[in-house]
Design a protein around this nucleic acid. Structure first.
Lengths: 278, 278
DNA sequence: AATATCTACCTGTTTTTTCGATAAGTTGCT
DNA sequence: AGCAACTTATCGAAAAAACAGGTAGATATT
């Protein structure tokens, strides 16, 4: 039976590129690391690295083993942490969720949710971090279609058209639209679901973040379609108002998990506090 | 870091109920097994069994760990077998697939697919076996909705209405229907998709297998709706004919995999030979 | 009450893992 | 070409871990 230690050394060699630095990384001597690696290779009956000169170069077999080794080690660590209270939570969230929704949720949960960190990034980055087991749970607005990732509906985000009071709310096409840059997930949702019925809408301004757009709209520069979570306060104070509420977009927010990884205790706690809704 | 050996002992103790028999199962002495278990418990900081007298009774913590331990061990074995050629394939298939479709596919693939065995059972049994890692891949007609199981479309099965030549094909309601017993997946598919438009159809005969129905239909006892794979030869020979071909049912067949388990080499070979079709 | 059975612990022994040193080979610089 | 700096693989010794046998204590069974 191969040992977890061997896999640990194997991954360390991949990451550091040498047995010396790998040995240091896993607190072994170089010779022990070299031994562990060749032991693993002989047990699998397959060389995992091509020895070209003094260099170790991961070959096809090694590349095949790598993701499985990573999954095994992470699962072993998770199992070890199953009953430990100290299991901190590493969340990945897309911008709207991370900036507006999560702070409120985590604040409400108080100390029940020891959250190590929340990384805010785009969907693809979060997916990649999930694949490397660097995050425990993803909360995304877009779609992540990797076969090793599991997307399940979490909550819904309502996106509303907002403007300062005084904007005519009759012909949406003629209003001065402010939007996110092309390529943004938010932009594409707006284009597909809201503007499909409206012809010839061209933004007068493109900004790189929801908060920037929020401020532009507050400054009276135009109208935009933003998550209700972003503009909640401005709506309550009356600073902004909703135009054409019947055209609001409900977009689904998703939980992103790694298929080869059962929920951590911390993830389970999070989901107990913030369960999926409808 | 906990060791795979410890998990092996842990599972053996669960299965055998005692450290003595567990030790035998994993080729250790009783003392070593007892040691491994308490080592595991102390490493997790949590007792996994309640000691009731001389008895070991799995407690809540142990039950929480059990599925993870199983998954870890199976994945470790899979990794070890990654490069071995001897990785045999343990398939689970529902009746129509296992009896008619698979023999042809495996026969065509010849020796490329060393298949250890094909277990033919109903969807629920296959799902349960998959959960215990006793099968590598499931091929099912129905639905398996366990969160740890992944269902993906594989192929389609065409179910046609058949009878011996001479049966009037005008009013399907009035024909003598032969069906599977209630509770069968095939029966429910027929009822939902075929008979939803037909009122008051009552079977004159209920039989427990497709082959039995096939023979009954050939004997001229009535009509039935069967997979084309079952009646293929009878249709070619002209012994049976298809009634109302426009009412044929296409039902989806699914691959069933365990989420916490990457494809075995043998599974990958199978899928390469018999890939999903539309 | 006697017996059989089981877990857990202790002790000495075997096996595995690890280390430091060293040989052999490669790379890059002069 | 020659030298210096690194790196890998191997070897024997040392350290650590795993292991078997025996046994005490405890609990069902008879």
């Amino acid at each position: 039976m191969l040992s977890l230690r061997q896999l640990e050394v194997f991954l360390a060699v991949i990451e550091t590129g040498s047995t010396i630095r790998a040995a240091e990384a896993v607190a072994l001597s170089q010779s022990a690391a070299s031994n562990a690696l060749s032991e693993l290779e002989s047990r699998l009956g397959e060389k995992l690295f091509d020895r070209v000169g003094k260099r170790l170069i991961l070959n096809a077999s090694g590349r095949a083993l790598q993701p499985r080794a990573r999954a095994l080690l992470v699962q072993a660590r998770d199992a070890e942490m199953l009953f430990r209270q100290g299991g901190a939570l590493r969340l990945g969230a897309s911008t709207t969720i991370g900036n507006y929704l999560l702070p409120r949720l985590l604040g409400a949960a108080g100390t029940d949710l020891p959250c190590e960190r929340v990384e805010i990034a785009n969907t693809d980055d979060i997916a990649e971090r999930m694949l490397r087991f660097e995050l425990d749970l993803g909360l995304i607005e877009g779609r992540a279609l990797h076969p090793d990732l599991l997307m399940t509906p979490w909550r819904q985000d309502e996106m509303v058209i907002v403007a300062v009071p005084g904007f005519a709310d009759q012909t949406l096409e003629c209003l001065p639209w402010i939007m996110r840059e092309p390529g943004s997930g938010t932009r594409s949702v707006v284009e597909q679901q809201l503007l499909s019925g409206l012809e010839g809408v061209a933004p007068i301004l493109e900004l790189g973040s929801s908060e920037a757009i929020h401020n532009a709209v507050r400054a009276g520069l135009g109208v935009s379609c933003l998550s209700r979570h972003v503009v909640q306060q401005s709506l309550q104070s009356g600073e902004l108002q909703v135009l054409a509420p019947e055209r609001s977009i409900r977009r689904q927010l998703y939980l992103l998990r790694h298929r080869q990884r059962p929920d951590t205790a911390a993830v389970a706690r999070f989901l107990a506090c913030c369960p999926p809704e409808a």
